[in-house]
Simulated assay, not measured.
Amino acid sequence: MSDAADPHAPIRAGIPEHGRVPKYFAVKTRLESVLDELGEGGLLPTERELAARFEVARETVRQALRELLIQGRVRRKGRGTVVAGPKLVQPLSTSSCTEGVRRQGRTPRRQLIALEQLDADPVLAGELRIGAGAPVWHMERVLLADDERVGLESTYLAVSRLPGLARDFAPDTSFYAFLREHLGVEPVSVDERIETVLATPREALLIGTPPALPMLLLHRSSRDANGEPLERVRSLYRGDRFSFTVHLDKKA
């Protein structure tokens, strides 16, 4: 059997046909074994110690660690690096991130950054079916799971739909739960678009990540049972801490 047909051949693990790999990739592969031995929360040796162990330059170790950081295998803690836990798996559905995090046994929280009224620009006004310049709520919150910052969310909705939002809503709780319990309304139709981006310096500071860390950006527009626009949401999730799933079922 040729290597190309062998599912266990090295090429399946990222080694090209010619068998030559960059030094950082070889170090990264060896580091993955170290991570498995240490377990979640385990503290990695310093770059200097790893460079001596693997007999490579510190920059080679640093590049390997950067890739592991982007993949979510490790995370920074103080001045050290520790083994990260599994990513949060968020299904793409009409439910909120709060409810998705709670289903995985984690404790979701929100930290309010801003709750303000803005004048709707023409694009936002068209999405919410209101007049250009009409007042909209803008609510910006940091997303947390077990006190770990994992994202940043901006919600826009017409003030006319919810004039008492600033008075009645506790911003550290689930917005969708508030809509259901206090207004008897919830999203029943949702459009979402996902793309990869880099956080701005401000966003990286709020989330607590390096600016070069890839992010997953979700644009969501939701409607109620009557088909009326409910909100527009821009959610930025850490690419090293989140993955998304969707269930597709082709009916006969």
Rank of each mutant, 00 (worst) to 15 (best):
residue 139 M to N: 05
residue 73 R to P: 00
residue 69 L to K: 06
residue 185 V to R: 14
residue 114 A to Q: 11
residue 95 S to K: 12
residue 118 L to E: 15
residue 251 K to V: 13
residue 171 P to W: 13
residue 160 S to Y: 03
residue 2 S to M: 07
residue 9 A to H: 08
residue 123 V to T: 12
residue 26 A to G: 14
residue 79 R to V: 05
residue 210 P to C: 09
residue 192 E to W: 07
residue 196 T to M: 15
residue 74 V to L: 02
residue 223 R to N: 02
residue 239 G to T: 08
residue 44 L to S: 13
residue 198 L to Q: 14
residue 141 R to L: 06
residue 20 R to S: 04
residue 250 K to N: 14
residue 67 E to D: 11
residue 208 G to E: 04
residue 14 G to P: 10
residue 193 R to A: 05
residue 205 L to H: 15
residue 29 T to L: 12
residue 113 I to C: 04
residue 239 G to P: 04
residue 27 V to I: 14
residue 25 F to E: 07
residue 125 A to Q: 04
residue 30 R to N: 07
residue 220 R to N: 00
residue 129 R to A: 13
residue 99 E to F: 11
residue 214 P to F: 03
residue 78 G to K: 02
residue 48 R to N: 14
residue 57 A to C: 10
residue 116 E to K: 08
residue 147 D to C: 01
residue 26 A to D: 15
residue 131 G to N: 03
residue 4 A to C: 05
residue 121 D to S: 01
residue 168 D to I: 11
residue 49 E to V: 13
residue 158 A to D: 09
residue 172 D to S: 13
residue 77 K to E: 08
residue 111 Q to L: 09
residue 121 D to E: 09
residue 159 V to G: 01
residue 101 V to L: 12
residue 122 P to M: 12
residue 75 R to N: 03
residue 57 A to N: 08
residue 157 L to K: 08
residue 114 A to Y: 05
residue 180 R to Q: 15
residue 69 L to N: 05
residue 186 E to Q: 14
residue 1 M to A: 11
residue 64 A to V: 10
residue 248 L to T: 07
residue 56 V to E: 05
residue 137 W to H: 00
residue 116 E to F: 02
